[in-house]
Nucleic acid binder design. Sequence first.
DNA 1: CAATAAGTCTATATATTTTGTAGGTTTTAT
DNA 2: ATAAAACCTACAAAATATATAGACTTATTG
Lengths: 138, 138
Amino acid sequence: MLSKKTKYAFHALTYLGKHRDQGAILIQEISEKYGISHKFLENILLELKKAGFLGSKKGKGGGYYLIKAPTEIPLSKVIRLLDGPIALLPCVSLNYYEPCEECESQERCGLNKVMIKVRDETLKILEMRTLQDILEGE
Amino acid sequence: MLSKKTKYAFHALTYLGKHRDQGAILIQEISEKYGISHKFLENILLELKKAGFLGSKKGKGGGYYLIKAPTEIPLSKVIRLLDGPIALLPCVSLNYYEPCEECESQERCGLNKVMIKVRDETLKILEMRTLQDILEGE
DNA sequence: CAATAAGTCTATATATTTTGTAGGTTTTAT
DNA sequence: ATAAAACCTACAAAATATATAGACTTATTG
C-alpha cells in the first residue's frame, strides 16, 4: 500500500494539474480541498519541489505550480520519491538495493529470481502511467 | 515492500517445497537455515497452516509439511495472508476495501481509476506466479 | 505411564516507521 | 513597514512491524 504521504502527493499533483492556468496555488487551498493537515502537506510539496516536479513562489501571492507536463510525471517517480522502493524485496531493488542477510547466494535464490520478474513487470506499469492518466480520469 | 514476515513465509514455503519427500520438518531446522527467530517463525507457520497451505504434526517426530502442490500456491495469496492488501490504495482493494475520507466521489476520482488499472495488472502477475516458480529458480 | 519433544495459543514487549506538530526564518507584494 | 506566504529543522505522537514469554496440548518412546 502507498503511504498517506504518497497518496496526498498524488492529490496535490492532480489539483495543481487541473489548475495549471491559474498561476501559484496556496498550500492551504489544497489542504482544505482534501482535508490534509497544512503542515504535513507543506513537507510533501517541498519534496515534490526539490525533486523538480513543482515550482514555487514565496510571499504574498505565492504558492505552488507544476513545472513539468503531466505526461512527464510517471507514477513510479512519485512513489519512489515519497515511499521509497517499488520492488518487493531490498535484494531486487534497483534504487534501494540491499542484500538479504539470510541469503547465502543471491544467484541461487529462487525467491530473488521471481521477484526480479515481478519488479520488472510492475515497473512497466508504473513507469508507463503518468499524472496525465489521473487527470484524464477526473 | 514485503514485510519480513512475508519474506520469511516465502523462505519457509520454499524450504518445505524442496523437502516435500522428507515428511515433517522442524520449525527449528527452517529457523536455523535462514537465521529467523524460532518464535517468530512459529507464528508465521501457524498462519500458513490455518490458511491451508501447510499441515503439521505435534509431538516427537513432528513438524510442518506442504499440503498443497507448489503450483497451487500463488504469490498473491501468500502476500495477502501475511501483508494484507496488494492494491496501492484502500479504495481500490478487492479484499480490504475502504473508501477514502477525503474523496467526494470515487466515481469521479482519477487517482482511483488509475489505481484500479495498476491493481488489475499487478494482480495478473502475482496470481500467475507460484511457489513452483520460486522452486524452479533454486 | 512417565519423560520428552514438538506444535498451539494468547498476551505482551520492543523497535521502527509513519503521521502530524511547533515554531522560527526568509522572501515578496503592497 | 507590514503582512502573507513558502522554507526549514526538529520533535512528538500514533501506528505498525518485529520479536519474546510462558503456559498448554498432543504424540512418541522407553
